[in-house]
Write a protein that binds this DNA or RNA. Structure first.
Lengths: 223, 223
DNA sequence: GATAATTGGTTCAGTATTGGATCACTTAGG
DNA sequence: CCTAAGTGATCCAATACTGAACCAATTATC
């Protein structure tokens, strides 16, 4: 009898796993079945799986089976939950990354009706007196720019930012940094953005949005 | 053989709900009816619906029925669900937007240990023979770059992309476009990226990542 | 308004499967 | 002879599913 049966079975199983035979969260055959399949005692299979356990992520659950977990993807829900803890600084970095490009896309792809809606949000934000109202139309303006970008995933990414923007720490920070002068400043920057969009000028829209976000960042984070 | 039938029923129900079979406030079939429909005990149906409860907004009312409610404020979970329908083209646009910058951040911010992990993923992807194994380490490499970026929100955004990458349409597309020559080409591009990271060269990393993604885009979408 | 039917909530006993653990025994190899 | 690996077997504990009963709230029906 060869003295390394368990080891060779372990190697065989590992190869089959890495070849993708049992994808992500699938259940492997039960030990008793593998035992008869390999023509070997269950004890030996158990030892083989034991050796495997170091190199390959397996979870063995009594009554259910042995599962192979290939760096198992977290669900989108879990990811969403983790995002809720993000810092405003990280978020501003992302906004600086996404929004200028979204504005450039919008200048290229928006329909005139969509641009009208951007303009409408801009006008309402400009006319707003209370901070809450301004905030609402400000957010709406940015969102409508994303809606023009013709990239649904990009729009949803912005929806994430929008939800995060309305959460505790972020909200207080906005309140502290708000002033009438800054509101007017933001409106002027919005105006530049809207002008570029109406000119259908992608690079103009990109730089206008970038400038706006940089001043938002400076005001919020004091940089 | 526990057939794990509750889990598969949960999956089936979730698909039917997301396909729009039961609109906003509709009542789902009573448990006893679903039970006979699926040819299964009511207990099992109840467990399946229980599993569902985390991912889908349901309200179960004694004497009335189980209702599916979609109309609430858009939560992060719902946004995540909408993202699942994104097109590969939209997604590549986002990757082109996020990943070069993430690479630049990584070149600046990564610890040497983190860079080692990037290198490890690169080596394993290079050594991989099977497509599944290459894909796994390729994804891991990109993810580890994001992990170095020191922006948690950015990392989570990439997690979203990663989950989407493993879904149906996208997966088939990868399979169709995969070839040994392309794998080798990708590895060379990864090498350039890794070199720039090790040189701590943000702009080099940015352009290497950009070039890589452009060739991925060309291969996947034929542009 | 009272009654019956419907529906989700709960519990229980019973069957089957599965991984976990331990035993006595055999076989190969030094 | 002794040790390590493998066999075959038994028992345990956890889990999945079934089938059934009963409760409580709601709704339809008389």
């Amino acid at each position: 009898m060869p003295r390394l049966v368990a080891a060779s079975i372990a190697r065989s199983l590992r190869e089959r796993i890495e070849a993708g035979e049992w994808a992500d969260g699938t259940r492997m055959p039960p030990e008793r079945e593998l035992a008869t399949g390999f023509g070997v005692a269950r004890n030996t299979i158990r030892r083989a799986i034991g050796m495997l356990g170091e190199a390959v992520p397996l979870s063995r659950e009594v009554g259910r089976g042995t599962f192979f977990e290939a760096g198992r993807d977290p669900s989108l829900g879990e990811i969403a939950r983790r995002m809720e803890g993000s810092s405003p600084a990280d978020m501003m970095e992302i906004r600086l990354l996404l929004e200028p490009t979204a504005a450039a896309f919008a200048a290229t792809n928006a329909s005139t009706a969509e641009l009208d809606r951007v303009v409408e949000a801009h006008l309402r934000a400009s006319a707003a007196t209370a901070m809450a109202e301004f905030e609402r139309w400000d957010a709406e303006l940015h969102h409508r720019v994303f809606a023009c970008s013709r990239n649904e995933l990009l729009r949803e990414f912005h929806n994430v930012l929008r939800v995060l923007r309305n959460q505790g720490a972020w909200f207080e920070m906005k309140q502290r940094s708000f002033s009438e002068a800054r509101r007017a400043h933001y409106c002027a920057e919005h105006q530049a953005l809207v002008d570029a969009l109406l000119r259908r000028d992608p690079e103009g829209a990109r730089t206008a949005m970038l400038a706006h976000l940089q001043s938002v960042q400076a005001n919020l984070l004091g940089r």
